[in-house]
């Protein structure tokens, strides 16, 4: 299925997410406006911006859930929808609630694993890794938000991918869970993986991320390291507030 125009990739970059003039228009609103940046392996890249800034839309565009109006997003030098076994290259958690509540955690993971020829052994492994082994046979509908977040992270980890994207993974997690996510993100990055992480918790982001991408109204505001930002401003939070003060609006929130 052809959902994205463009010739063969000019160069293959392993473990890289590359946005080239990515634009998405919903009716009259530009949710993502000519966005270009690159996410590289080996560290956590924090993806920040006010509500409605286009973070989630950008992630949906990278994953081929939405078709861009123009521009393109490449993972490992290719469009996501052209990947044969995408779970082995990219893992993503967009919306922890996007599960059928009647299915057990094990069956939820199993049906997704099968699409990419991932065996049941790996399903059991990730269930243990995220701490859901004890409730593997329970219906997902009865899970708390924190448990659903862990299940969503398990889905992302199934294919042992080099690139991981998480949209607000600490939402609904207890302090234990927040620390667990922080350690998980850091260890995944230390293994040389590429991590794109969106969150509104600035203190958490300052602890976890090394690089920061801030967007506002669908446009790139700044791409910098956390060290650069905290050198110029008292804290990451102050940097964020100063840089996004013009961009707080409620755009095409989806």
């Amino acid at each position: 299925m052809v959902r994205r125009a463009g010739g063969p990739p000019s160069r293959i970059l392993y473990g890289v997410i590359e946005l080239q003039h990515l634009t998405k228009r919903y009716g009259g609103t530009l949710a993502v406006d000519d966005l270009s940046f690159t996410v590289e392996p080996g560290h956590v890249t924090g993806f920040l911006g006010p509500n409605g800034a286009g973070k989630s839309t950008t992630m949906r565009l990278i994953l081929g859930l939405d078709a861009p109006t123009s521009g393109q997003a490449l993972v490992n030098g290719r469009g996501y929808t052209s990947l044969r076994k995408p779970m082995r290259e990219v893992g993503a958690l967009l919306d922890a609630g996007a599960v059928h509540g009647g299915r057990s955690a094990y069956n939820h993971l199993l049906c997704l694993a099968r699409t990419n020829d991932i065996g049941p052994k790996r399903v059991v492994e990730v269930l243990e890794q995220v701490g859901l082994a004890g409730v593997a046979r329970k219906r997902v509908g009865g899970f708390s938000l924190g448990m659903k977040q862990r299940l969503g992270i398990a889905v992302a980890l199934l294919g042992d991918p080099g690139i991981l994207m998480f949209d607000e993974p600490v939402n609904g997690l207890d302090p234990d869970g927040v620390r667990w996510i922080r350690d998980l993100m850091r260890s995944l990055a230390a293994e040389g993986r590429t991590i794109l992480l969106s969150s509104h918790l600035m203190s958490e982001m300052a602890l976890t991320a090394e690089r920061i991408v801030i967007v506002g109204r669908g446009k790139l505001i700044i791409e910098a390291t956390v060290a650069e930002l905290t050198a110029r401003y008292p804290s990451l939070e102050d940097a964020y507030m100063a840089l996004t003060s013009d961009s707080v609006q409620f755009g095409a929130a989806r």
């Binding site: 299925m1 949906r60 994953l63 081929g64 859930l65 996501y80 929808t81 052209s82 990947l83 995408p86 779970m87 993503a92 967009l94 919306d95 609630g97 996007a98 599960v99 059928h100 509540g101 997704l112 699409t115 990419n116 889905v155």
Partner: peptide, 20 residues
Amino acid sequence: TSEHATGMIRTSLVTVPRRS
């Protein structure tokens, strides 16, 4: 429709991006 109602369709399409 159970996939559309729950959002599971997006999880499914991330694992199988070829909609056909």
